[in-house]
């Protein structure tokens, strides 16, 4: 049926690189999934239209935590426009509409593609991405 608890996901869940406080960030925002109790605070440092640094704190299921960590890996160093584009691709993938080339573009985030078969978990995977899109949108 589903196989999204792969090594990429479990590794990012157990050893998140970006899960820490971020002093002097330019913006931060809370993202919450009330029905699951997933909650994160996303911090971004945006300078001249480029995401120069980012972090998150909070708690939730492995899908929500790993997805936020993978997202930060991807978007740090990229322009806000590129981050918005990746968000669009990620949403597309999570709804099962992305082609293989688009999933490739998402790099490690592509490891979450199987979540499109688990409607109940879609919002967990999207939490970090949605919060980022709200911040830069």
């Amino acid at each position: 049926m589903t196989n999204f608890y792969n090594e990429i996901l479990t590794d990012h869940n157990m050893h998140p690189v970006h899960k820490h406080e971020l002093s002097c960030c330019t913006c931060s925002r809370d993202g919450i999934n009330p029905s699951c109790g997933d909650e994160i605070t996303l911090n971004l440092n945006v300078e001249n239209g480029v995401i120069t640094d980012g972090s998150f704190t909070g708690s939730g299921c492995a899908v929500s935590q790993a997805s936020a960590d993978i997202m930060l890996d991807l978007v740090i160093g990229k322009s806000v426009e590129d981050a918005k584009h990746l968000h669009e691709l990620f949403v597309k993938m999570i709804h099962g509409d992305a082609c293989p080339a688009e999933i490739d573009e998402l790099e490690e985030a592509g490891a979450l593609a199987d979540i499109s078969h688990m409607p109940a978990r879609v919002k967990c995977a999207l939490l970090g991405w949605r919060t980022m899109a709200e911040m830069v949108g």
């Binding site: 049926m1 589903t2 196989n3 999204f4 608890y5 029905s35 699951c36 109790g37 939730g60 299921c61 492995a62 899908v63 688990m118 109940a120 978990r121 967990c124």
Partner: peptide
């Protein structure tokens, strides 16, 4: 260390129907 929603998803893969949440 394992969130209940992850537990429920893994049970689901094995065809075991249980409830997770509050």
């Amino acid at each position: 260390d394992v969130h209940p929603h992850d537990i429920a998803a893994i049970f689901d893969e094995s065809g075991v129907c249980i409830r997770a949440g509050h």
